[in-house]
């Protein structure tokens, strides 16, 4: 009996200790439909029973831009690299929002889905991936807003030609990918840690807010004091946002090095994030 069963091919072996790099990508691929259905769920449940529906996606960036323009532009008089303030902030907010949404939503994935995860197996990575894709929809809508604003400024009675789309636009897919994966990677690490140390949840909420001020969202890198510049550049999001502004508005300190650095950091964080997440998912149900 023992011998005959050993010679059989088992489809699945469930055991406690698996290789660190057994990331079950095959499983992930099998469940790809689930990812899309979860995205659809997020989208539909977001606007069901609201009057404005998807318009809500516009409202937050518009108001943030107005407030930023007033506070940082008019009151504080912070430089906008010679760009119209509204465009400058909107570009920063759009890309920052995508990153921070990915990060904050991913960072609570174990807590939010403890019930489902406790009852059914599917590759857990599907959940954070679906969050990243869901947020992409939102990001797309906000990007549309940015483009509309650019058209408005371009064709307004007093044409404003201080901005123009550059060939950096070809890097756009890479930039989106970096924002998504950096947010995802950091979120995965945090959510894995929060299964045991709940304190981190509180840290994320205001940590992300503070991090925004360490990123070039409300000021251009060129306006940063020389003494602090290198620290701001250490933030991988800085390179991404600068490149994003350069691509769409033609202003921003964009270099191959800065984007290369951001890519490297993203890859490393994502790599660790996925591994830690996969380690945690196996037993988190017992501790959460």
């Amino acid at each position: 009996m023992k011998n005959s069963s050993q010679s059989q091919d088992w489809d699945l072996v469930i055991k406690g200790h698996t290789s660190l790099f057994d990331l079950k990508f095959k499983d992930l691929w099998h469940y790809r439909d689930l990812l899309l259905l979860l995205v659809k769920r997020d989208f539909v449940s977001f606007y069901k029973q609201t009057i404005l529906g998807p318009l809500w996606f516009f409202i937050q960036p518009i108001f943030t831009t107005i407030v930023f323009t007033f506070v940082f532009g008019t009151l504080a008089g912070i430089s906008a690299d010679g760009l119209p303030h509204q465009l400058f902030y909107l570009a920063g907010i759009t890309s920052w929002n995508y990153f921070s949404d990915c990060l904050t939503k991913t960072s609570t994935v174990f807590k939010d889905n403890a019930n489902i995860f406790g009852k059914v197996y599917f590759p857990r990575l599907i959940m954070p991936l679906s969050i990243v894709v869901s947020n992409l929809v939102r990001f797309g809508v906000q990007l549309l807003l940015l483009l509309l604003m650019m058209l408005y400024f371009y064709f307004s009675p007093i044409p404003n030609t201080s901005f123009h789309i550059t060939n950096g636009i070809f890097l756009f897919p890479l930039l989106v990918l970096l924002m998504a994966l950096l947010g995802l990677g950091m979120g995965l690490i945090i959510t894995a840690a929060t299964t045991k140390y709940k304190d981190l949840t509180f840290l994320v909420t205001f940590g992300v807010q503070l991090l925004m001020y360490a990123t070039t969202v409300i000021y251009p890198l060129s306006a940063a004091p020389v003494a602090y510049k290198k620290y701001i550049e250490l933030n991988p999001m800085t390179g991404i946002i600068e490149a994003f502004r350069y691509a769409f508005l033609g202003k921003g300190e964009f270099t191959v090095w800065s984007i290369g650095y951001s890519t490297l950091v993203t890859v490393v964080i994502l790599f660790f994030g996925v591994i830690i997440f996969n380690r945690t998912e196996k037993n988190f149900v017992d501790t959460i």
Binding site: S5, Q8, D9, W10, D11, L12, V13, I14, K15, G16, F117, G118, K119, V120, Y121, K282, N283, V285, D286
Partner: peptide, 19 residues
């Protein structure tokens, strides 16, 4: 829970054929 892979065993293993 172990059979449905919601949590993983401390020691030992389960071999399964099929879904």
């Amino acid at each position: 829970k172990l059979l449905s892979r919601v949590t993983s065993p401390t020691t030992g293993q389960i071999k399964v054929k099929g879904r």
